[in-house]
Amino acid sequence: MPLLSLRGVSRDFDVSRPWLDRALEHEPRRFLRAVDGVDLDVNPGETLALVGESGSGKSTLARLIVGLYAPTSGAVSFSGRRMQMIFQDPYASLNPRWRVRDIIAEPMRVLQTKKEVSDLLRQVGLAPEDAERYPHEFSGGQRQRVSIARALAGEPDLLVCDEPTSALDVSVQAQILNLMIDLQRRLGLTYVFISHNLAVVSQVADRVGVMYLGRIVEVASAKALFSHPRHPYTRMLLDAVPDLELSGRPRTPVAGEVPNPLDPPPGCPFNPRCPHANERCRTEKPAFIDGVACHAVAEGRI
């Protein structure tokens, strides 16, 4: 049984202008569909990564999972005890006026969990003395460790991580990723890991979901996705990753940019940039079949 499951989850944001302006100019209300009909299962003990570019809705989806946003339609069901979240910006995710001790102790007080602040600090690679310090006395990587300690204080079985390393330097990123892998092994945690960086994802994920304009276009095991990407968008993303191996592989130049989510193209959202798009792709939204939402794949064209 999955630990977390999403069925047809959508979320709209009201981006209309103020009521008076609308009334004066006879404008309708406008909605931005940030997440569009997402179905997703997360199994206990695995790391499910969600990748996508800006505007793909991955951060909104993370917030829908932990309940910071309510879904406009669809349902999120969670069969575990508790989830916690780790945020992207280590400079904004800790209250600057609180001591580290109070930051880490807050979930214990609210959720009545029994943990020791000094144990938690040691678990994330900090010293127990650090409890008396304020966030500004730490580097970005250390703050992210404090964030992780706070999340662990709530005794979660699911951790939703929204770009936890994208604000960090490479060597610090490696430290944090390693810490997360170690913690998962030791505590049997389940991760939903949001990132725009495919290389980071391939390092931590068991399964990967690729998002484009609010929809999941492909889900597969990390191994399968990185060796045999199926959706044209996944292929394009993989192709765009700078090549450190210096293999000199030819790169197909990627055309175009992500369309404005306020005005998504009809049919498949990827059709304006897709080399395989045909008439059907331009008019009909592809259904999510067998791990991928693409007419060309379904028809066996690619």
Partner: peptide
């Protein structure tokens, strides 16, 4: 410390 694509999940 740079993550690389295609490598199995590991430290």
């Amino acid at each position: 410390s740079i993550p690389k694509i295609g490598i199995e999940k590991k430290r």
